[in-house]
Design a protein around this nucleic acid. Structure first.
Lengths: 347, 347
DNA sequence: CTGAAAGCGCTTACAG
DNA sequence: CTGAAAGCGCTTACAG
């Protein structure tokens, strides 16, 4: 078996031309074999396969991509993969992406609008087939060009602003309503709401759920019981001190997200007389603290799965008007949300 | 300003040629402007910039990639992004990748060796500039071709098998040794070790740390106190029943990873007389359960950062022999690891 | 069943 | 300072 010459492609990699030369066939025949196209004599295919193995040939997808226009890749932009909510969402997206024989390109933007746009543009320059975005920007008109150029974009967890596009959301209003109703049913009337920065869509939505539930129950909303802002330990401590020690002290707390819940738990852990607590968003070990943490659970995996599936539907040609999908939440009682108000604790 | 004709590129996207035509310059001049190359008359650059804006031109990176051979992308393969250990690692990798103006392509392989290889090959076909792998396969010789072709590969958390390549590891042996020594210093002699499937590198290494610490302290290793296997609740319950009720019951447990620790905590939560517990790997809320969980903390962000940095060093030309970097662990006492053995609890 | 030619949209290497 | 030509490694559209 005379080994003629090592392929001397500049990149150190064999190309289809190298394979063709070695197998004594044309470039096109190699392409047929590599892509499993029909109409190649078994004997020919065999020779090509052998040349491929000998040269360690691996198709260059950037050339293929240039020619076909398909990247076989999807971009995912979110706030921070390190956050369990997003990492679970990412995993679900990955699964759908894989089922569609694509690769996933990801980036965290830390709620920085500029970074979101930067990432989106970089992904578009790479000509990904579609984009999944948990938005941080306050204006998404910058994507209009890309959508017109045929790149489907699906928003997740928060809707786009100044742009018509698909979006998959959790039922923020309904979820909080359920949680507040649960506390009301437990006898609570003085229920505080700790939410994130109202600049965040979900923070506003959830607050709406709080107000709605109180209204529906005929309990007047006391604005002094609403605390909105970034989860800073110091601010939270101050808020809790006030809420729990004021004349008509609160008997229950609702925390608007994971980070707030954790921060509140840390502050509460030293206290003797604990208020009831329901948190929005579930997390690992919520059942192992004492009392177990009652939560309104979102479905991050569902958000990712549904959004990614919708994206591939769009890629497959689905051309409705932009859709708005809302996924339900689930109340999971574990103890903290079932603590009665002090007056009733004697029984 | 006469608007001649909308660009009719097949993809619906303007190309450099379209821009050139509109600006009345050559393709090459457009390329110069887009890439910020010097030697373009300000007036010319201005005309080009305007044409770019009008056409919504965005450079096609797949063409650029084909020509330059640089993907400006890094591949990351791991077990499961949804696991906090990996999601934090991913975030750190992302940061380094971004600092180097690259994009990140990721994939989870669920400890499936075939899936690892599939992903690695797909990423190589896409001609990523380098690969970061938390390996699941038991043979990495399949990567020899790629490495020879110039794709640097850095392994993370577990070393490669049958392949010489860089690797960044946690100090598994030393970390467990510290944890066991801590328990011994607390008066414990009957210390059980619950580890994961010994097919996993880190599980074997950590067990080695356990044996070493006992040996060094002159405590004979009782094989009956070693339980290795996937973290199945049923198996763990059975093991705990046996370990805690046998004649010479254990007074302390060491759990070899996050999932084992969680599973053990769930089983323990009902019990009255708790053994001391130290877990390998830290997690959120470990301070909020009672007693606080004492852990040997790894540095997942450090692993990701150091590995990614090493990868870019390789891309920049660093050509030493393959390196092996070991990152230290830290013992964090929070209560569960400081519970004394029953004999001493009276004091 | 097989192949020669053209072209995807850029960058490279020259030339003027 | 600007541009014409060639080519990266594939796939497309034909032809035989």
């Amino acid at each position: 078996m005379s080994r003629s010459s090592v392929p001397t492609t500049r990149s150190g990699r064999a190309t289809m031309n190298d394979v063709a030369a070695r197998a004594g066939v044309s470039l096109k025949t190699v392409s047929r074999v590599v892509n499993g196209e029909p109409g190649v004599l078994p004997a020919t295919a065999e020779r090509v396969a052998q040349a491929i193995a000998e040269l360690g040939f691996r198709r260059n997808d950037s050339a293929r991509q240039l020619r076909t226009g398909r990247a076989a890749g999807i971009g995912l932009i979110l706030e921070d993969v390190a956050d369990p909510f997003y990492s679970v969402l990412t995993r679900a997206v990955e699964q759908v992406v894989r089922d569609n024989d694509c690769l996933l390109l990801t980036g965290s933007c830390d709620d920085d609008p500029d970074r979101e746009q930067e990432l989106a543009m970089a992904l578009c320059e790479r000509r990904v087939d579609g984009l999944l975005i948990v938005p941080s920007a306050t204006d998404h008109s910058y994507l209009a060009h890309e959508i017109k150029a045929g790149v489907p974009v699906v928003f997740v967890d928060r809707p786009p602003i100044n742009l018509a596009a698909d979006v998959v959301l959790a039922d923020n209003v309904g979820g909080v309503r359920d949680g507040i109703n649960h506390l009301i049913a437990g006898g609570h009337r003085r229920i505080a709401y700790l939410g994130d920065d109202p600049a965040i869509y979900t923070a506003r939505e959830r607050l709406t759920g709080y107000r709605g539930a109180l209204d529906a129950a005929g309990i007047p909303v006391d604005e002094a019981l609403i605390v909105m802002g970034r989860p800073e330990p110091i601010a939270i401590r101050a808020a809790l001190d006030r809420l729990l020690s004021q004349p008509d002290a609160v008997t229950a707390l609702f925390t608007g997200n994971n980070r707030l819940t954790t921060a509140v738990l840390r502050e509460l852990s030293g206290r003797v007389d604990r208020p009831a607590l329901v948190g929005f968003d579930d997390f690992e070990l919520a059942d192992l603290i004492a009392p177990g943490l009652t939560v309104v659970a979102q479905d991050p995996a569902g958000l990712g799965r549904v959004a990614a599936t919708l994206l591939f539907d769009r890629l497959a040609g689905l051309s409705d008007a932009p859709r708005r999908v809302v996924l339900p939440t689930v109340l999971i009682p574990r103890g903290s949300g079932e603590l009665p108000p002090p007056g009733r604790r004697a029984r």
